[in-house]
Design a binder for these strands. Sequence first.
DNA 1: AACGCCTATTGAAACTTTTCAAAAGTCCCC
DNA 2: GGGGACTTTTGAAAAGTTTCAATAGGCGTT
Lengths: 344, 344
Amino acid sequence: MLNGRTPSVKDVAAAAGVSLGTVSNVMNRPEVVSARTRERVERAMSELGFVRNESARQLRAGTSRTLAYVMLDGTNPFFHDVAQGIELAAEDADLSLFICNSNSRATREEVHLDRLLQQRVQGILITPVDPAAPHLDELTRRGVPMVIVDRVRNADSCCSVSVDDVLGGRIGVEHLAELGHERVAFVGGPDSLGQVRERLQGAREVWESLGHDPDNLIYLPTEALTVAEGRSAGERLAGLPARRRPTAAFCANDLLALGLLQQSIGAGLRVPDDLAIVGFDDIEFAAAAAVPLTSVRQPRQELGRAAAQLVLDEATNPNHNHQQLQFQPELVARASTVRRARSL
Amino acid sequence: MLNGRTPSVKDVAAAAGVSLGTVSNVMNRPEVVSARTRERVERAMSELGFVRNESARQLRAGTSRTLAYVMLDGTNPFFHDVAQGIELAAEDADLSLFICNSNSRATREEVHLDRLLQQRVQGILITPVDPAAPHLDELTRRGVPMVIVDRVRNADSCCSVSVDDVLGGRIGVEHLAELGHERVAFVGGPDSLGQVRERLQGAREVWESLGHDPDNLIYLPTEALTVAEGRSAGERLAGLPARRRPTAAFCANDLLALGLLQQSIGAGLRVPDDLAIVGFDDIEFAAAAAVPLTSVRQPRQELGRAAAQLVLDEATNPNHNHQQLQFQPELVARASTVRRARSL
DNA sequence: AACGCCTATTGAAACTTTTCAAAAGTCCCC
DNA sequence: GGGGACTTTTGAAAAGTTTCAATAGGCGTT
């Protein structure tokens, strides 16, 4: 009867001696079918090894059971932690998850979005290369639920989940100021990234509000938020004349901080004695560094989880309102700034 | 006409004044349709904003355009690099990719596989919790192309892609022996992991073949391959009586090595002078550590890419033969073993 | 025995695409 | 102007599921 094909509801129905509508009921509304037939159908299913065909289900029901996350940079563990949070939420809602990686390239992002549209995913979470890109409007125009993760967009066009980067900047520099540093470097870039700008802004705000000379907060621009750029920033730092040289550095993310840390230690500096370092994100490797890294923590998993919940709300709740969720970052002090770190 | 619905081929056909078979031809066999109509149809498509419904395509065509990777441990960057390789290959073949994470738990793995079966993915790549688990047989029984990544399975039941772990073990310890170390620790576990066993085996083989006393290769078992376990191994190492204490450690992966490195430096040891450290995998953070880590490199991306190619061959080539692809690891020497590292 | 009321089951339509045999068009040549 | 050989287009069937109105069956009441 089956000759090789994978069995369908029809085969199950035949085997159980019921109509195919009943089989569907067993799967989708088990409470309406009598215990006796339900059991019979279930036995037939497992005997035949029936597996529901999701494409057919989706086609008919008009709704898919899939979410997607388009991440910005697969080499940064931060985004994998966000993805992990999304996956947990998807799991709870019994949804599958596509994970794509735009690698910071707008064209790849567009290719991915196009494919996801074809898949009729129920919602898209994205950390976009450019939050203002027109292909994102395209999504909203089509009515695909979308949530911007770790970025913000012109307010009410869609939901977003992010962290207060200005506050993050304040926290980081405030910590260094409290430790008595009088000359501090801000390491980060490119400043086309909104986050870098905001973290810098927060840093400057707090620095000046504490009565420090603006010139003593030295901006060391980088081309990207990578370990290599962190190293290169370290070299530039070392090249500064001693009297201009900062005693502490606040980095726009942990990768930079790790690169800077590596370069500094390699050059014979003691951290934190000669140079205190603060990172941003608090990825796992921050705590695992030779000198455990003080970092401004973002609730990475929580970010993903919240984003997934928002997208699901938009997908299922008819009077959904777009929200801009913003989390508070917090300082995690470790040995890269304080001699005897309490926490590891 | 459309009132809100997303347009279908039927709508496109109506708008272009052709039959719906022709629209399908424009998408799938453009060469059979005349330039004039093709153009007309294409215009209609873009005016209506038509996006092909992949579920329907898949249902009718019987073949999906999706691959899946079930990774073992999302907290280990190694697997993300493998996933990245897979994604590149999938991209080349114009396929979408599901990425799942079993988090080393067999039950989650099973849940994922079940869902993937429902999705009728074209092939599954997996780094299984247990390569002998019966639910993997289930897949082959159902005829779903499957490739085991970074593990091996009873030969000819399916393809696999892995790295020669015995050789990796040899390489790592050989390097340390060449540097003159006479007492070496092997850090790794649990030994239920085939890889750990094989790396240890290689380590022992080469150690003895070089004429060293087996007792001077000290096995420091760990409960998992994590940074935390690496730290704890470091503490145990430090607790050994000086005359038994190794001058070098070979770790079964980089996370262990990073943890060990951190603990050692924190305890005031100089690396490599007091303790030389070799890791395994060569994840990005190995090179980024304060003391850049010598590591036995696995071609991570290549592993993923090759696996994807195998699964595609199995999916499309009728006389496909199962293969056990094995890559050669290679040593990347850095400052954690040699005073002046040539490479960074 | 006829009726109404439940609960349980059925059958057909619908979702969107692809495929393929058949029909229609076009062109050229005798 | 009729026939042959193409090229292009059409129309209907099919894929596996869900939905829903309609039917059947069972049971208690009059």
